[in-house]
């Protein structure tokens, strides 16, 4: 509990004896925030029609949406637009939960059960979409691999079992990756804080340096990239089960005829 509390206020230069703000952590934090705000402000107008996007907040969220949509459409294909709501929801939930990990002793995504719940939702939705795109029977038979002669039925059954296991392991890999990255960030900040504990003797007290503050940039990178990777892998799994569904090509060939 005490270490958690210290970890939560590492930005303020915590540790026994070190009350009040430490300039190092505060400067690092302020510099990072200013740099990010500057970057967002300069980049937010690029490529948007100024007639329709006059509100600055609209511009920023539109850029975010366009970025994710480009990515998802590149992976899933032209029919990926209908998966944008769930993809964007996942991105926002994970990103905002990850943001807590920067400043708080714990975060929703530093809890394995939350991540496992999200992974179960994602993989369950993938199964549902696969059944809707290919039909229930075809979706389950595609786990059994290619069509083999009747003498090789044991091999088909083995392939089926292995494919089902690998499908179930997708849940584990999705949730464990997110959990490990966020919780690992916490552990690293805590270890670095304990390195700098009681190393500045001032008067009767020994101040601490929160070395964990220097991890803030890389933690910020982790926060964004992990949210992106969850969304990315989700869209990869979606594209794997729905890529037989070639509506765009059908329309294109129909127009060509």
């Amino acid at each position: 509990m005490v270490t958690n509390l210290q970890n939560s206020v590492w930005l303020l230069g915590a540790g026994e004896g070190g009350h009040g703000l430490t300039p190092v952590g505060l400067f690092a934090y302020a510099f990072l925030v200013i740099a990010i705000i500057f970057g967002i402000l300069t980049a937010s107008k690029n490529g948007l029609n100024p007639r329709y996007f006059t509100n600055r907040w609209t511009q920023r969220t539109e850029q975010l949406y366009l970025f994710l949509e480009n990515m998802a459409l590149g992976i899933i294909g032209p029919h990926g637009k209908r998966y944008m709501p769930i993809l964007f929801t996942f991105w926002l939930v994970i990103f905002i939960s990850n943001l807590f990990a920067l400043f708080m002793p714990s975060a929703p995504t530093a809890d394995l059960s939350f991540n496992l719940g999200m992974a179960l939702i994602a993989i369950g939705y993938v199964q549902y979409e696969g059944m809707r795109a290919n039909g229930v029977g075809k979706h389950w038979t595609h786990f059994a691999g290619p069509k083999l002669p009747i003498a090789l039925i044991p091999i088909t059954m083995m392939i089926f079992v292995i494919e089902i296991i690998s499908e179930a392991m997708k849940n584990l890999s999705l949730s464990l990756r997110l959990f490990g990255n966020i919780d690992g960030g916490h552990l690293a900040a805590e270890s670095l804080n304990s390195l700098g504990k009681h190393i500045i003797p001032v008067g009767g007290m020994e101040l601490s340096i929160p070395f964990g503050a220097f991890l803030l940039p890389i933690k910020l990178l982790t926060v964004v990239v992990q949210a992106l990777i969850f969304t990315l892998l989700f869209s990869v799994y979606l594209s794997l089960v729905t890529h037989h569904d070639d509506h765009g090509d059908e329309h294109a060939t129909a127009a060509a005829h």
């Binding site: 464990l176 990239v225 990315l232 892998l233 990869v236």
Partner: peptide, 24 residues
């Protein structure tokens, strides 16, 4: 670049997962 970044991120995630599993 756009396509490569996407694929690169996926590959990075898979490599990282092995290390995280080792850690746990």
């Amino acid at each position: 670049i756009g396509k490569m970044q996407t694929v690169m991120l996926i590959a990075l995630a898979f490599v990282e997962l092995v290390f995280l599993l080792t850690l746990f």
